[in-house]
Nucleic acid binder design. Structure first.
Lengths: 134, 134, 134, 134
DNA sequence: GTGGTCTAGACCACC
DNA sequence: GTGGTCTAGACCACG
């Protein structure tokens, strides 16, 4: 499981990490019970402070995505969290509107958006090829 | 053009304003040349500081969405900005992946996402019905 | 003598007018004693408020570039004003540095700047072809 | 990197800062990746409000000259922005005409302008010796 | 300590 | 009235 962070990104580093892990879970690339790199190990890979990775793991654990077993490591939870249907629907609506705005302002149409969506679906399941853009 | 802000929202106030305006432009509810409320006027409507609205307007102008004319007011630009196709594609990819993640983690499938997208499309063109959620 | 104004320009309208007239005088296109359009007439041409043109004329007169003869009209002065050599030198230095910055940031070199200068010299003497850019 | 501001100058403080930084970049005195003083630090040096410096930094970032990293600081961008060749040419033409006007109205000739330009070139690369004039 | 956001109020220039 | 600038001070998020 290869992660990337971009210090210039508006999104905080720990959130970038959180997002990538949740996306990996959503895409099925990280499965229930799978072991994650220790925050120390990951911090070396990403060349960032260990505390930053730890914060990401802490929040993911608080949200129920991962579980920590002292002395053994951190694992993908087998009971992924579910927000209320209402919250889910609202968030998706918001994201969907944002996606459409980006498309329309770029001169694209609804069918193009669906096309992009299909490409993204493929990426989700197989992993991104490069770092987050700023 | 009715706007809403939610001080509890994670997104900064000025960004909430920016987003609503760009979405209104994308949805065709704000047309080229149309006059916006002055930043003072809007600040009263939204019950926030004038400078906060001004910051939103300033950034929108820097991005090319709107134009200001001293003493006359602020208007929707007739030349909406175009990021490079590469940047556009990247941003849309990112948003699309995010949308899919939200859906899959909620237990929904690809067809559901398309359905949500259609609803969002309708909202974009006709305006939201309620304030931003936190 | 054809003038142009751009309401979106950062420079105030009356300053845009002032600049064009002083440039025309510098370029020899407006000669001593030559008659200018009345501020009323010019305001119609430019589709702006007469007061705005009047302000430009007032300031140009205060600076000594033009002279008003009640009932007869406004004329180019035969005694163009001279700032102190020190002020002149400072202003030119500043403008020169700005020109060089623009060039270097654009990847051009000193010889290119001289080339641009020669083109500008030609324009100065024969008049611009289009409106001011924002 | 020593900056100066002059509150009496017609140019807004934040623009004076912007100009000096872009000129320093153009002159090669500020290099890609170099760290700038924090906006708080600089505000103390210049004895002006931190927000004023921040505004300058914000705009420079929007223009692509510098990049900020939360918690780490602000750095000179390694990808200086490039306006379209057309915009560049227009701006330079305008500045060049202005420089010539100043010269001709001062009774100087084209060779004098080139001389001034050479002096300015030297200043650009080595920094100004005094504060901005009003 | 760094940047990010917001406020309340002031003054000026422009139209 | 409009937008443009500046201040002084506060609070938060991030590393």
């Amino acid at each position: 499981m290869q992660l990337f962070v971009n210090p210039s990104d508006e999104l905080p580093l720990y959130r970038q990490i959180m997002r990538q892990i949740t996306e990996a879970i959503a895409g099925g690339r990280l499965k229930s019970g799978e072991k994650l790199a220790s925050h120390r190990e990951l911090s070396e890979q990403l060349v960032i402070a260990p505390l930053t990775v730890k914060k990401a793991y802490d929040e993911l654990e608080a949200l129920g995505f991962i579980e920590t077993q002292r002395g053994r490591g951190t694992f993908v939870s087998d009971t992924p969290p579910r927000a209320s249907r209402r919250e889910q629907a609202e968030k998706m609506q918001q994201t969907a509107r944002r996606l459409l705005s980006q498309a329309y302002l770029a001169g694209l149409g609804f069918p193009d958006v669906v096309k992009v969506l299909k490409e993204a679906d493929h990426e989700l399941a197989h992993g991104p090829r490069k770092k987050e853009s700023a």
